[in-house]
């Protein structure tokens, strides 16, 4: 989503861009760009760090910047399910890397539209200098400024933070809860771990087997804490990490490949590795079972 349906007529002038993010699941990356010559006007539009603004004010500024012909914007919305899937994948991607990729995706999208970006301002994600280097290597023609509190220091980043925050708020308001279980509601509060409404929602929507509806990012620390004491699920890809818990989890995870998902002590003994049998069985993890 963004203003990118039409390439602006000022695209060939040197432009600057600000990028900022809102939320952690859904996570929204927003960018705002305009000609460098428009910078002074931009500074007079009273964009401020979106966190310091009231919701109505943010909405108002968002509507006005959308109408501004000298401003372009774009967003990248990464849903909680996509975030958990990446963070809990066999080859895990951490949140910083996902964030970097999202920001770079936005830059690429705007460049591909033919906008001459010469300066891009961003908030830090991980080590600022490493991030700046990574960005400069990918986009050598752009000067990058990676700075803490960029959203309050640079109006162009403040603008981007408004785009991101408003998009996230609206997305959450309309978010489709896919799970159809009874009593699933949408009063999930702000999503901050300390928010009493969020806490109550998590407690209320906890399911002993499935965990939470997919609106919740499972790779979230708060979520793991809430699921302590619920049904344990062991994944093959986590085997090495769980090494400390004794090898029973490892054995059971292997068993599941064969189709045994019950974890009784008896089945634990039979590792479906085909050990001691000929290669044909080993390669197919076929084990002879006489006790069941």
């Amino acid at each position: 989503m963004g203003s990118d349906c039409l390439t602006p007529e000022w695209a060939s002038q040197p432009c600057l861009m600000g990028i900022d993010e809102a939320g952690r699941g859904p996570m929204v990356y927003g960018c705002l760009y305009c000609p460098i010559s428009y910078q002074t006007t931009l500074a007079s539009l009273h964009f401020a760090d979106s966190k310091t603004l009231k919701e109505e004010k943010r909405e108002e500024l968002y509507e006005s910047l959308k109408l501004d012909k000298s401003i372009g914007w774009a967003v990248d919305v990464i849903g909680p399910r996509e975030l958990s899937a990446k963070m809990l994948a066999k080859n895990k991607t951490n949140l910083n890397e996902i964030s970097h990729n999202s920001a770079m995706g936005l830059i690429k999208r705007v460049l591909d539209m033919g906008v001459l970006l010469t300066e891009v301002y961003l908030d830090t994600v991980g080590d600022p200098e490493k991030y700046r280097k990574k960005l400069s290597e990918r986009f050598s023609s752009i000067k990058f400024v990676v700075s803490k509190k960029a959203d309050s220091l640079f109006p162009v980043v403040s603008g981007a933070s408004i785009v991101a925050k408003v998009t996230r708020d609206r997305a959450l308001r309309e978010w489709l809860v896919e799970e159809t279980g009874e009593n699933i509601n949408r009063n999930f509060g702000s999503g901050y771990p300390g928010d009493p409404e969020t806490k109550a929602w998590l407690e209320q929507h906890k399911h002993s087997v499935f965990g939470f509806p997919s609106l919740v990012r499972f790779s979230w620390g708060t979520c793991t804490a809430h699921l302590k004491g619920e049904v344990e699920v062991a994944w093959e890809s986590d085997e090495t990490e769980e090494g400390g818990n004794g090898n029973s989890s490892k054995r059971q995870a292997k068993l599941s490949r064969f189709g045994f998902t019950t974890c009784e002590s008896r089945s634990e003994e039979m590792e479906s590795s085909g050990k001691g049998r000929c290669k044909f069985f080993q390669a197919r993890k076929i084990q002879q079972v006489t006790q069941f």
Binding site: H207, V209, S256, T261, C263
Partner: peptide, 18 residues
Amino acid sequence: QVPCCIRFDGSAEVSHYF
């Protein structure tokens, strides 16, 4: 058949969540 071991034996609201 799922690639994990669910330490639970009993019924669950599978169609609502999965």
